[in-house]
Computed example of a mutant assay.
Amino acid sequence: MISDAKFSIVIPVYNGEKYLKEALTSVQKQSYFNWECIVVDDGSTDSSVSIAELFALQDNRFKIFQRPNGLPKGANSCRNFGFDQTSGSIVNWFDADDYMLPEFIETKIQAFKKGVKLVISSGFFTNELLENKKSMQIFQTQELYTDYFLWKLKLTTASVAFKKSFLTSKTLFNSTLKKSQEFEFFTRFFVDLSFESYCIIEAELFLYRSHPSSKTSLNQGYNADFKESEAFTVLENFKRSIAYSNTTVANSSYRLLINLLYKAIANNHSSNIEVIYRGLMDNLKATRRGVIASHILRRMIKCNKLFNINFLPWDKLLKKINVY
């Protein structure tokens, strides 16, 4: 255990006045004392900065920054910039609308034994009022990457605390993504972790708020930016799983890509059609079943140029094929 380690919390915020005070209060009430909270404002036009600055005046463990103009706008960019400002040996990103339970930091600190690079905890999914708690599904596993990719392990940004030394000099959050940021980030870091290098805590240590303005709610319709981010992330995992000979993730990625392609065609999302189609064709050559799937897919795309093929169940046919 790293008994006296400094714990750095990084919180990006944009027009978060409705929930920010609760989030920062939950940090201030931690049972563990040696922490810092880096708040990075993304150009808020509400009272978010004033709220954060009031906490900083009362407690010098809160540090407030503005995202530099030279960096892209967005939470990912703020998370990366915030990481660069940390002075702790442990880093945990947190969202401005979530809530830490009092033992959040102390419990995670205690789990950082020798060789552990990251600690994962459970939490509660809640409604906007932090009510109707539903425990996130967390369990002990030696297949962290696979179980997370398949969404058997329910993780959010707040779930994972990292040794800073493990992250230093590595690419952090992808600032071009509009959705699936933590999914892309976590899968990239989880893929080759040994069982000894992570610790899973099944206790619930935070509250994850779902509300009408959350991306989960906004994604109910077809959002082109979100779908492009999803396609990028799944394609990266498709290639990654092939490289690591992970047939479970490869086949799951393939089916997800077929589903995304079907929706892109139905919504005339031409750029995503091209990206997904090319990504699939480039990576379906290694097995006989993959070659068969690529031949069917090529014919489907050619047909779609002549007439709308989405009245046919072509996606169901292709998703039945295990390509690896």
Rank of each mutant, 00 (worst) to 15 (best):
I2A: 12
S3G: 05
Q28W: 07
Q28G: 05
C37G: 04
C37N: 08
V39K: 07
V40A: 10
D41E: 05
S47E: 13
S50A: 14
S50L: 13
I51M: 03
A52N: 07
K73M: 04
G88V: 04
F94G: 00
E106S: 15
T107I: 09
K108C: 08
K117A: 08
G123N: 09
F125C: 04
E143K: 15
T146H: 02
D147C: 09
L150Q: 12
L155M: 13
V160Y: 03
K163L: 14
K170W: 04
K179E: 10
Q181H: 08
E184I: 07
D192H: 02
L193C: 04
I200S: 06
L205G: 02
L205N: 00
P212W: 02
K215M: 07
T216M: 14
Q220T: 11
Q220I: 15
G221L: 12
Y222H: 12
N223E: 11
K227N: 12
E236N: 14
N237L: 10
N237S: 09
N237Y: 10
S241W: 01
A243N: 13
Y244F: 10
T247P: 00
A250H: 00
S252E: 12
R255V: 01
L256W: 08
L257K: 11
T287G: 09
R289C: 00
I296T: 05
K305C: 13
L306H: 12
L306E: 10
F311S: 11
N322Q: 12
